[in-house]
């Protein structure tokens, strides 16, 4: 595995009016690394995640992906987004397309793959996430967990350099969380570079190479899962962990 820096955030700031959501954020994600971002609500985790493929713009600082600074809206940005997968909290599967077409669409229209090749790849990926038999259904006919696994397959179909997960299990019924986390854990084992915003501490312990703790728009501390959960150094991380791990 190479240790090249894939994503670099340098002094990133963002404000919503008075609210300073990202404060001087510096973060580097190496190729093959699984970085899990945790922290209390409103800490800026999702904003940070969405800023990496410019679904959120930033006010100052620089974000680069694989050595290229994020371009402004346009053709180049579209090309870069094709290389950065994104999985949303609310799945966002295309509601008017079948499950199969959801995974095929961007392969054909963005990567310009021949349709039969795209279909073959889509079926392969759907099998891999355990949805192969549901390919002809529409998203609304699937459970939340199944929809989210399709969304992961849709992201994987683009052969992305990195996948961003924005609270992928937060909208799921509890019994469906694990089926999604299992797919993500398998991906992490296979060496996919991942940035995951989540409240699932078990996943963070199990799959993360590094845990990043954010609060009030800042990265407060980052460490290996063992280091962070074993002995968090900051007071904020200690009180956060005390709150969520005691019950």
């Amino acid at each position: 595995m190479t240790q090249a820096d894939l994503i670099v955030l340098d002094q990133v700031n963002k404000r919503y009016g008075e609210h300073h959501v990202l404060r001087d954020v510096n973060l580097t994600v190496r190729q093959g690394e699984v970085v899990v971002i945790i922290g209390p609500s409103g800490a800026g985790k999702s904003t940070l995640c969405r800023a990496i493929n410019r679904l959120e713009t930033i006010d100052s600082g620089e974000i680069s992906v694989d050595g290229t600074p994020l371009p402004a809206e346009g053709r180049q940005l579209a090309r870069l987004r094709a290389e950065v997968g994104m999985v949303f909290q609310s799945f966002n599967l295309f509601a008017h397309k079948t499950v199969l077409d959801n995974v095929v669409l961007a392969q054909v229209h963005v990567l310009r793959r021949p349709r039969d090749e795209a279909v073959r790849k889509a079926r392969e990926l759907l099998d891999r996430v355990g949805i192969g038999s549901q390919a002809a259904k529409f998203p609304a006919q699937l459970s939340g967990g199944q929809q989210q696994r399709v969304a992961i397959a849709r992201a994987l179909a683009m052969d992305p350099k990195v996948i961003l997960f924005d609270e992928p299990t937060s909208a799921l019924d509890p019994e469906m969380v694990n089926e999604v986390l299992d797919v993500m854990t398998a991906l992490a084992r296979e060496g996919m570079t991942m940035v995951v915003v989540t409240h699932e501490m078990g996943f963070a312990r199990r799959a993360a190479d590094r845990v990043v703790f954010m609060a009030d728009g800042e990265i407060v501390e980052q460490d290996t899962p063992d280091g962070f959960f074993g002995a968090p150094s900051s007071e904020r991380a200690q009180s956060f962990l005390a709150k969520i791990l005691t019950h």
Binding site: R81, V84, N92, A95, H96, H109, V110, M158
Partner: peptide, 26 residues
């Protein structure tokens, strides 16, 4: 829903294709 266009853009579809393939058909 806004997420439909966000998902399309995050896959690398541009303005015209997002409109033509995802949002306008819906």
């Amino acid at each position: 829903p806004v997420g439909q266009a966000e998902a399309a853009r995050s896959l690398g579809l541009g303005f015209v294709k997002t409109l033509a393939l995802i949002t306008l058909p819906q």
